[in-house]
């Protein structure tokens, strides 16, 4: 290693005014937001570098749409085209919810690596690494949405409302995934192995996506199950999206969905933070 003495770093004086000075973190406003965005960028770079980790949000919605529409479409709704119109919002909700599993798995493996020690030794908000990772995952949710809608379009799916409503529907789905991802982050902080995170999250998301209105209308389900289906957050999300994409009656589904999102964040964000702080 050559040492070029002219460019070597100089240690700042004790009373330092450098960027690392004691008042540095408070000098500029909103440190949590800035640090989280910096760390979200890290997530984006990592996502970009490992496209194979995007299979769950790219190929899965395509495969699910093709399988369910062409295999069950005729039996469930009499025609594959009619079923596609019905099913697409459901598949989008299901895959975006499953897409939220990955963050818990990734953070669980990340914590074992030294980079989190580095973050913890820096004068940044403790929660920034988690918030940053969650924000960085927005890219994945946007990819699911685009992939599902594009596949649907090729298969014959059409929006029957207007662009603004369609975008609102997509945003609602992304917001839902962001909120649900705090559950995943919490499990990721609590459980010892990444495999266990995957298993637990699958057990949570699976019943949510099948015991719902994703594949069949709620009215076709047995009465005892309808009780669960009617409170299932995914049911509200799917109903809200059907309203925003197709013009079905919206009811209070948007509000219920937003309430669930707020609930997930209010409960699981603090729990995840606490678990993160305790994790050594």
């Amino acid at each position: 290693m050559t040492l070029d003495l002219t460019t070597k770093p100089r240690v700042r004086p004790v009373s330092g005014t450098g960027p690392h000075a004691v008042d540095g973190a408070s000098r500029r406003p909103l440190p949590l937001v800035r640090h989280s965005l910096t760390l979200a960028k890290r997530s984006l770079i990592k996502t970009w570098r490992t496209p194979e980790a995007l299979i769950d949000v790219t190929l899965q919605p395509i495969i699910f749409l093709v399988i369910f529409v062409y295999i069950f479409g005729g039996a469930v709704s009499g025609s594959t085209s009619g079923y596609l119109q019905y099913l697409l919002p459901g598949i989008l909700a299901q895959t975006i919810a499953q897409g939220a599993i990955a963050i818990g798995v990734n953070l669980n493996t990340d914590l074992e690596k030294g980079i989190f020690d580095r973050f913890r030794s820096l004068p940044i908000a403790r929660s920034a690494p988690l918030v940053g990772a969650v924000i960085g995952d927005v890219a994945r949710y946007v990819i699911v949405t685009v992939s599902t809608l594009a596949t649907g379009y090729v298969m014959g799916f059409r929006i029957h409302t207007n662009l603004a409503q369609a975008i609102a529907g997509c945003l609602l789905a992304v917001l839902f995934a962001l909120s649900l991802s705090w559950v995943s982050v919490f499990v990721g902080m609590k459980v010892r192995t990444s495999g266990a995170v995957q298993g637990i999250m699958f057990l949570i998301v699976m019943p949510l996506s099948f015991a719902s209105n994703v594949f069949v209308p709620t009215s076709s389900l047995p009465g005892w199950m309808q009780g669960f289906v009617n409170v299932n957050p995914l049911t509200h999300l799917v109903a809200a999206m059907r309203g925003l994409f197709q013009g079905d009656p919206l009811g209070n589904h948007v509000w219920w969905t937003l309430a669930w999102c707020a609930g997930f964040v209010a409960v699981f964000l603090p729990l995840a933070m606490r678990a993160y702080r305790r994790k050594v």
Binding site: P19, G24, A25, R27, R28, R34, T38, F119, L122, A128
Partner: peptide
């Protein structure tokens, strides 16, 4: 660069 940004540079 990431570390520098986190240090508010």
């Amino acid at each position: 660069v990431m570390i520098a940004r986190l240090l508010d540079m």
